[in-house]
Design a protein around this nucleic acid. Structure first.
Lengths: 318, 318
DNA sequence: GCCCGCGAGACACATTTGTGACGATATGAG
DNA sequence: CTCATATCGTCACAAATGTGTCTCGCGGGC
């Protein structure tokens, strides 16, 4: 399950690395590189873009080190967090998730010890985090996906997120081989009690680090946009008082689980299992996520919050 | 000693970090960022350049991971190294040292454990390595400069190299407070036996990691260019059969120390001390360094070699 | 008060970069 | 063998970037 030597195309990583060296480290122009290596400038250009997309080239921005941002300090104080990381809010129409994810990837790279096991959520933020992991190899890490899968491969599929993360960490990856939403409550019981799934779920309380993501139930919800949940479910979950979910645990504004028929069909690790993980990092940004972030903090799901300025400011405004 | 609020000018690191996020992570145009933050585009442009120069923005190119380069494998085999890292040779007239140094910085970042002590050489390569360290803080590292100082601050001053490295690692830094070349052999004895110097030298055999640099004695020698050694010394050292030095130890082509009056005046850790360091990394590239690299390997000073393609190819051609 | 020098913004320009259009060439199915 | 398709190189152009020059405003020295 963890074997994936080359995942799709014949992308020449060695060539891309060489081009990247000349471009980013040596500061040569794309034209000069093309001439030197006997390629077209356009080819060089696309290889560079691809190298960045694939995380082969990584750009790290060192935090101001000594002087942590004002917002971070206030978040820590007001919500009793261990740490808060606030990245700038996007200027244009850029997706917040790429920025928060970038910080999340850096955080995981810094805090996942060799041999440690990492649990992850899913979504655009996690996807971006995976791209921003500093590649390692032979460190004996494990990645456990903390939710069930989605049959339709949207642009943000949990299995894909997990696979990318595991590849970047050279980790063995464990999936919950069940849908995120079981067809019926009975099937959910049967599935979670059956073998491959049961033992993966049993790994969760023993994880060293969890990188959680938050799904919101606002109008802008990506889960709604991509059809992960139906508009009917969306409506009734909101009516039940939920502001979103963390790993399939739908929470109310106060952080308590809500009552809803869907709950009994969710395939996910028990809340108790999640709460057993000693370091729980929540990565979520954007105004839409403010309510669910607050709920997650109240539910004690968040030791470390990675978010953006707009969400941070809104959180503090309450 | 590790406190450095702002080391010289009023470079606004927080602003630079924010700009860098918008530019590198969010992919905004410099103009848009300038507009958003109320700055000139030119200012944004310069801040970005400065952020890169100062190592605030770091660009990492992941090695092909599985498939290590052919050259590296051959170096390891032929010279019995633990590891070899070969970066592309510069295309234009770029300084090889920035490329080799970049790789060296990444290597140190990956291999210097918390609390460990690092010994460093000096020169452009080390300077570039320091710029490419992934900043850390509170890890309790120590940096020891493995040579004496130079009075005239050339662009590559050992004390400056050490200071940059220590700053990047948030490490305490130890200097040999003596000139690289003592005026007389007697003074050298007196200095190395006297107090601050003696105890710094005593730290050397206990270091965990050494990042060594190589000084060559070719026509292109930077040491000659910058006047670190006089042309007379250069001539006579060559006449004595030396091809360069590692931490002030002038070696012959076979790796043995040469005989020369200058030797008795060098302030540096004993060869035995250097050889007691369990992981010795030599970072040097360019054709001029080939002979001294080979000598250093023969002198057992090099467990891990970080070099560029041109030097690697030349080393293997022998 | 006046002059000098310095830094920063405004402007301008050359270079570099990203991207789309178009045609050539390879690849593979029938 | 032919044709459809996809990939890649060439050309071209617009946008973005790096850099130089000019000028203005500010502060310090006299």
């Amino acid at each position: 399950m963890t074997i994936d030597s080359d995942h799709d195309d014949a992308f020449d990583a060695a060539l891309a690395a060489r081009i990247s060296w000349h471009y980013f480290k040596e500061g040569q122009t794309q034209e000069a590189i093309a001439g030197h290596l006997g390629l077209t400038r356009k080819r060089v250009n696309r290889m560079l873009a691809e190298a960045r997309e694939r995380g082969l080239v990584q750009i790290t921005i060192q935090p101001p080190l000594g002087a942590r941002s004002e917002l971070e300090a206030r978040l820590v104080r007001q919500f009793g967090l261990r740490q808060a990381i606030v990245v700038p809010a996007p200027i244009g129409d850029t997706d917040v998730r790429v920025m928060v994810g970038a910080a999340a990837g850096a955080y995981v790279s810094d805090h996942l010890a060799p041999g440690a096991a990492l649990g992850i959520g899913w979504g655009g933020t996690i996807n971006s985090a995976a791209q921003n992991i500093r590649r390692r190899s032979g460190q004996g890490n494990r990645v456990v996906l903390l939710c069930g899968g989605l049959a339709e491969s949207t642009s943000i599929n949990p299995y894909d997120n997990a696979s990318m993360m595991a590849r970047a960490l050279d980790a063995r990856c464990y999936y919950i081989t069940a849908p995120m939403f079981a067809p019926t409550a009975e099937l959910r019981e049967a599935m979670t009690a059956s073998e491959p799934i049961k033992s993966v779920l049993a790994m969760v309380p023993k994880l060293e680090l969890a990188l959680l993501s938050a799904v919101d139930l606002t109008e802008q919800s990506k889960a709604l946009e991509y059809g992960v949940i139906s508009r009917n479910d969306w409506r009734s979950l909101r009516a039940a008082g939920s502001v979103g979910d963390i790993c399939g645990h739908y929470l109310g504004i106060d952080g308590n689980p809500v009552e809803h028929p869907l709950i009994a069909r969710m395939v996910h690790p028990a809340m108790k299992s999640l709460l057993a993980i000693p370091l729980r990092v929540l990565a979520a940004g954007g105004l839409a996520k403010v309510a669910i972030i607050r709920a997650a903090i109240k539910a004690k799901l968040c030791h470390v919050l990675i978010t953006d300025e707009s969400a941070a400011a809104a959180l503090l405004d309450s």
